[in-house]
C-alpha cells in the first residue's frame, strides 16, 4: 500500500476547496482518501474484490456529498464514517446472500438426500470463525458510529496509526476517554464489553 503519513490539515483544506467548487483539487482529495478508504474496506471485508466494490461505492457517495461538506469538521473522520457505512452495507449484503445460499442447499437436501455433500462443501467454505470475526467488525463499526468526530479520529490514530493534532498526555487522555465511550457504546448497543 502507498499510504504515507496523512496530511490531515491539508485534506481538510482540499476538501473545503472541493466543496466550494474548486475542481483542481479533486485528484488530490481522491489520492489522499482512496488508500484510507480502501484500507478500511479491506480490513472490514477481508478481500480485495469486495473491498474494491465497497471502496468504489464509498468514494462515489463521498464525492456526491462533497458539496455538503462542512469545512468546520475534520474531513477524514467524515470520509471514513461514510466508508464504514458502505463497508457495513456490503458486509450485510454478503451475509444475507450467504444465508440465502446456505438455506438453498438445506432445502434441497431435505428433498434429495444426495445433495448432503454439497451442503458440507459450503460449510467448509464458510468457516464459523470468519463469520464471528466479521460480526465483531460490524459491531465495532456500529459502536464507532455512535462516537464523536474527535473520538473517532483519536481511535483512528490509535488503531490505524493516523497522525493526530495532539500528542503525548493529551492524546493519551483522549484515547482513554474515547475507548471508555466506545466501551459504553458497545455495552449500550449489545449489552456486553
Amino acid at each position: 500500500m502507498t499510504e504515507g503519513p496523512l496530511p490531515r490539515a491539508e485534506i481538510d483544506v482540499w476538501m473545503a476547496r472541493l466543496a466550494a467548487g474548486e475542481r483542481e483539487v479533486f485528484t488530490l482529495v481522491f489520492e489522499a482518501l482512496w488508500p484510507r478508504v480502501f484500507g478500511l474496506c479491506r480490513a472490514t471485508l477481508g478481500n480485495d474484490a469486495d473491498a474494491a466494490d465497497a471502496a468504489q461505492q464509498a468514494m462515489m457517495k463521498l464525492m456526491e456529498r462533497a458539496a455538503d461538506y462542512d469545512p468546520s469538521r475534520a474531513a477524514l473522520p467524515w470520509a471514513l464514517a461514510i466508508a464504514a457505512w458502505e463497508c457495513r452495507s456490503a458486509l450485510r449484503r454478503r451475509t444475507r446472500s450467504r444465508e440465502v445460499a446456505s438455506s438453498e442447499p438445506e432445502e434441497s437436501a431435505s428433498h434429495s438426500p444426495t445433495s448432503v455433500d454439497g451442503a458440507r462443501t459450503l460449510e467448509a467454505n464458510d468457516p464459523e470463525s470468519e463469520l464471528v470475526r466479521r460480526d465483531l467488525v460490524q459491531r465495532a463499526l456500529d459502536a464507532m458510529n455512535e462516537l464523536s468526530d474527535v473520538d473517532r479520529a483519536t481511535l483512528a490514530a490509535t488503531f490505524f496509526d493516523e497522525p493526530t493534532e495532539v500528542v503525548g498526555a493529551t492524546l493519551r487522555k483522549r484515547r482513554e476517554r474515547a475507548i471508555d465511550r466506545l466501551r459504553a457504546a458497545v455495552r449500550r448497543l449489545y449489552g456486553l464489553d
Binding site: 485528484t27 481522491f30 468504489q56 457517495k61 464525492m63
Partner: peptide
C-alpha cells in the same frame, strides 16, 4: 499494483466515476 494504490487501474476507474458523481 495494489488496488489501494491511487495509481492502480481500480483507483483510476473509481476516480473517473467519482468525478462524474461529483
Amino acid at each position: 499494483p495494489d488496488p489501494a494504490d491511487p495509481r492502480s487501474p481500480v483507483a483510476h476507474a473509481t476516480e473517473r466515476r467519482a468525478r462524474r458523481a461529483y
